[in-house]
Design a protein around this nucleic acid. Structure first.
Lengths: 206, 206
DNA sequence: CAATTTCTTGCACAAAGTGCAAGATCGCTT
DNA sequence: AAGCGATCTTGCACTTTGTGCAAGAAATTG
């Protein structure tokens, strides 16, 4: 997701860059989780990560970006996975399948993601940039959905399905992060998608 | 919504405050729509609205807030409307009904909202704070949904329905703002909610 | 080792926000 | 109408964010 995703250039340089980026992200998350977003300055984050404040801004455009991580690549991969799912699979199932990778990667970095979700929950300003919440990804995914369904671009369906799926993933992640000993993330996502496909029927009061 | 909503104190003072706030919002939207978010300073916005830069920050905590408007009251009203819908109405229909007010208010300020949606689309950072996209509102709504459905608070259903409904409204508004001579906003929202209730069936390629 | 590219850092600077206190304005009371 | 208290506006000083530029350090290439 943010550290061990796309194969790096094998050079030592790239590794160092990744280490620095990860160190900045982690330092930022820990400090903000501890003190709150406004009580942490870029200078402190940089210091904790062992670089100069100026270097911080070579990696991230703003303080927030260090917290949410870099999910630019995720969008492209998600689109690729979705395009690879056979056309006869229904859209929702296809989206769920395409999301499997993202879910896996999130799961393997549970501690970091719990910290991140915690920080994001406490600082709602950060929320939009997570997962499929990012608009650029959403538009790209909606485009693929449109051709898959075979509908013209200004039809509302692709955008609706995409946005709704993103919302489902978001709620699943929120729940997952909030309950450390609860169900697995994959199961929560499955549950949400099943509810969507069933028309969001009201559950029995259990 | 941002100018003519909750009955103000009838005093001249409040009216003036509202005028100033509206002037700031409108100036900000026009300038940003024209030049782009980064190319507009608070000083320019204040100047266009006829107040000092310091006064700007007495109304809005940051530049972005002037663009998205003040939807704090909307959340509370939405919750109230939802609580007022008879319990036997299904959740999705109840949410749709509770949203009627918001939809109406948005419709009556079409020009401003088109400008706003345009700006928000071009500057995705702004997107989260719109309508039900705001986290605080979402949590409050989810809470009401939980008691309405009669399910314990850590069940995923309320949060899922709420987030999904918010996503539906957002896509409807996006579509509505993008096509000035297209269908009415209320119809687009209805369409989206109908699709949700039907389990998001793939439409016929039309 | 030399040349080139890339990363880091400091410096200077524009813009975003915030706290404080003085002055203006409004609303209400007498 | 005059005055009093509350609120709004504004300027000033200050911290923090974020960017452009150029010099130096480190790594990759040949």
């Amino acid at each position: 997701m943010h550290t061990a995703e796309t194969e790096p250039g094998p050079g030592r340089r790239d590794r160092r860059k990744r280490r620095t980026r990860a160190a900045l992200t982690e330092a930022a998350l820990r400090l903000v989780a501890d003190r709150g977003l406004a009580q942490v300055t870029v200078e402190e984050i940089s210091e904790a990560a062992g670089v100069s404040p100026r270097t911080f801004f070579n990696y991230f455009a703003c303080k927030d970006d260090a917290l949410v991580g870099d999910h630019a690549g995720d969008g492209a991969r998600l689109v690729a996975r979705l395009a690879a799912v056979p056309p006869e699979v229904p859209v929702l199932a296809a989206l769920r399948a395409a999301l499997a990778d993202v879910v896996d990667e999130v799961r393997t970095e549970r501690e970091l993601w719990c910290l991140r979700m915690d920080v994001v929950m406490r600082n709602p300003v950060l929320l939009p940039r997570l997962v499929a919440g990012n608009v650029e990804t959403e538009r790209a995914v909606a485009e693929v959905v449109a051709v898959r369904v075979g509908v013209d671009p200004d039809h509302g369906y692709p955008a609706l399905v995409t946005a709704v799926a993103g919302a489902a993933v978001r709620t699943a992640m929120t729940r997952w992060a909030a309950h450390p000993d609860g169900p697995d993330l994959a199961d929560l996502v499955d549950e949400a998608f099943a509810a969507l496909a069933a028309g969001l029927p009201q559950p029995d009061p259990s």
